[in-house]
Each structure stands twice: as structure tokens, then as C-alpha cells.
């Protein structure tokens, strides 16, 4: 259930980023909700499910962005496993630790995409534009806390749904339900 919900959310975010967000004024930049979703998945999802989700997001993005296939999938999977590794050792699910992780991850993801493209096309590459990268980085840092809060809420709500649907484990309370009060 969660897997499907987060998959649809990825679709929704890519749809937003390639259409409605393109109409935003240039000084606002382009918020990368998908990247925040990937970081959230890396922190919360189990490795196998999360990796499959991230791979699907990479393929979806490649279908509408860039000209070489496989680059986004690789970049996002590397970031996913990096954050997953960090999450095992640090409590990065805490809100105040997420913006720095997102910032470093975002720069790294861009670096991987840039390097892979540079290896494939050599001269025909867009110049590394610090101004635009830092602008997008700032937006993504600002958005980290509210988006994480939204995803956290969704995560908890879907957990409830998961339990209620699992009728084999769910047992209605028996006896006097006021006894523990």
C-alpha cells in the first residue's frame, strides 16, 4: 500500500516539476520535490523496496529529461544507498539533521549527473552554473522541513491503513475495555 502511494507521489512530483513549476518566475527557481521524496524513502523504506522505488523514479525522470538513459537512475541509487548508510549510523530522521543531508545529497546528485554526461558527450556540455545550483539548493533546503513533515504524516497514516487491512493480525479488543483506565 505504502509502496503504491509513494510511487504515485513520485509520478505527481515529476508531473508538477515538468509542467506547473516551469511557469514559476525565474527568480523562484525550480523546487525539486522528487529529490526530497528520494531522501525520505532512503531514511524510512526498507532497502529493497526503497531501491526499486528510486530506480523507477530515475527511469521516469530520464523519460522526460536529458538525452542519455541510466544517468538519473544511477545518481539517485547512489544517493539512496549513501543516505541509507548514514541513516543506519545516525538519527537523520530527526528534522534538524535533514537539511544538511539534503543539501550535500543534492550537490552530489548534480555532480554525478554532470560527470556522467561529461563522460558521454565531452565538449557538448552545459557550463557548471553555481548561481543556478545554489538558487535551487536554497529552495530545496527551505522546503525540506515542510515536505518532510508532509511525507511523515503520509507515512504514519499509511501505517495505520496497513495494520487495519492486515485482518490476519488484527484482533478486536476483548473483555472489559475500561479495565486499564
Amino acid at each position: 500500500m505504502r509502496f503504491v502511494i509513494f510511487l504515485f507521489l513520485g509520478f505527481f512530483f515529476i508531473g508538477l516539476q515538468t509542467t506547473l513549476f516551469q511557469a514559476l518566475p525565474e527568480w523562484v527557481g525550480l523546487p525539486d520535490f522528487l529529490f526530497l521524496l528520494i531522501i525520505f524513502i532512503a531514511i524510512h523504506f526498507p532497502a529493497a523496496k526503497g531501491a526499486v522505488l528510486v530506480l523507477i523514479f530515475g527511469i521516469l525522470l530520464e523519460a522526460v529529461s536529458g538525452y542519455f538513459m541510466g544517468i538519473y537512475a544511477i545518481a539517485y541509487l547512489l544517493i539512496f544507498f549513501m543516505v541509507k548508510g548514514l541513516a543506519a549510523g545516525l538519527a537523520i530522521d530527526e528534522t534538524n539533521l535533514q537539511p544538511p543531508i539534503v543539501a550535500v545529497g543534492y550537490l552530489l546528485a548534480n555532480g554525478i549527473v554532470y560527470m556522467c554526461t561529461a563522460m558521454l558527450v565531452q565538449n557538448n556540455l552545459m557550463p557548471w552554473n553555481w548561481g543556478e545550483i545554489l538558487q535551487r539548493l536554497l529552495i530545496i533546503i527551505i522546503l525540506t522541513v515542510p515536505v518532510s513533515a508532509f511525507l511523515e504524516m503520509l507515512w504514519k497514516r499509511t501505517a495505520k491503513k496497513d495494520n487495519s487491512h492486515n485482518f490476519l493480525l488484527f484482533q478486536p479488543p476483548r473483555g472489559n475495555r475500561y479495565r486499564h483506565r
Partner: peptide, 20 residues
């Protein structure tokens, strides 16, 4: 398999066609 069969390609593979 998915990564090895797609990386560096300019053409859409089946997953990319499905994705778009």
C-alpha cells in the same frame, strides 16, 4: 540488469517507453 541495459543509451528502452 536495468542499469546495465540502459546506461549511456540514447534510445528509449522498454522501461523508458513505459515511463513516458
Amino acid at each position: 540488469y536495468v542499469l546495465a541495459s540502459t546506461i549511456g543509451r540514447k534510445d528509449f528502452s522498454l522501461p523508458h517507453r513505459l515511463a513516458i
